[in-house]
Structures are given as C-alpha cells and as structure tokens.
C-alpha cells in the first residue's frame, strides 16, 4: 500500500498537467527505510516525448548523491501517460530497476478527471497496490 499526503499528490498531478502532452516524471524522496514519501522532486524528461520518459543522467546523479547525503531514497517514482491509462507499459516494466519503489502512474488523457495509481514492479511482475491519500502523516 502507498500512503501519501494530499499535497504531494497535488504536486505530482500539477506537474503532469503542466507537461502534457509530454510525459512528466520525478520522484518523492523519503527517509531510507521509512516507506514514507516526503520530499517532492520534479525531474526534467530528457526524452521530451509524449510516449517516453527518461531522467537526465546528470540530474539523476546529482539527486541520487543528494539523497545519499541526506540518508533518503526514492520512495515514489512517478511519471505520466498522456494518452493511455495509468498502467505500466511494457517499456515501464522492462526498465523498472527499483524494486523497493512505489511506481506511481498518472494519466492526463482526460482533461477533467485524473487517474492516480501505484504499483510495485519487481523482476518484470507488476502488482497494483492501494493508494491511501491522507491530509497529513501526523
């Protein structure tokens, strides 16, 4: 299950809307081992594409070093689909390399409604999980 604060969900959705029709991507970092997403980090989509996303390699290194220094990890890795449902594509599954992360998919195909779903992707196996949105972890 993914438990996440509403403000973070709003930031992810706002980023996805802003970059539409290109895919948006980023992470929410949290203390290592906590499974609690806390720090929203929007990343640039180096592919600038409506059908593909890829973190810029140097931006990724900088962020990963920073997380190391702060004893954080990428609790959530998110990206948007802009014309299809919020479900991992074959490419998403093939390239998923963080078995401990919650892979969040947002679809912006509908202007009014947003799909926000979360998955574990481990060894090519996708498992959807429940998303619980809270006002605050308190």
């Amino acid at each position: 299950m993914l438990t996440i604060e509403r403000a973070l969900v709003d930031q992810i959705v706002a980023h996805a809307r802003a970059d539409h029709p290109d895919e948006a991507c980023g992470i929410v970092a949290g203390p290592a081992g906590s499974d609690r997403p806390v720090r929203f980090v929007a990343m640039m989509n180096a592919a600038r594409s409506p059908t593909f996303y890829e973190f810029d390699s140097m931006e990724q290194l900088k962020l990963w070093n920073e997380m190391d220094d702060r004893d954080e990890e990428a609790v959530v890795i998110y990206h948007s689909h802009t014309a299809t449902e919020a479900y991992p594509s074959r490419t998403d599954i093939a390239l998923a390399a963080e078995p401990g992360a919650h892979y969040v998919l947002v679809s912006t195909r509908d202007e009014d409604e947003v799909e926000f779903r979360s998955y574990r992707i481990v060894d090519g196996v996708v498992t959807e999980e429940e998303v619980t949105i809270v006002d605050s972890y308190a």
């Binding site: 992470i27 593909f52 996303y53 890829e54 290194l61 074959r90 490419t91 390399a97």
Partner: peptide, 25 residues
Amino acid sequence: RFLAGLETEVADGDNVTILPAVAGG
C-alpha cells in the same frame, strides 16, 4: 557516455558509480 564509453581511461583513486536509468514509456 560523454567521455569515451568503455574506452574511458581509469586510474587508482577514481570513483565509478553505476545507476540504472529511470526511464519508461
């Protein structure tokens, strides 16, 4: 990739970091 790929020269004391790209479709 911006250096010489696998031909890039390395020496004692260097640091190499491997990260899987975060990417998908």
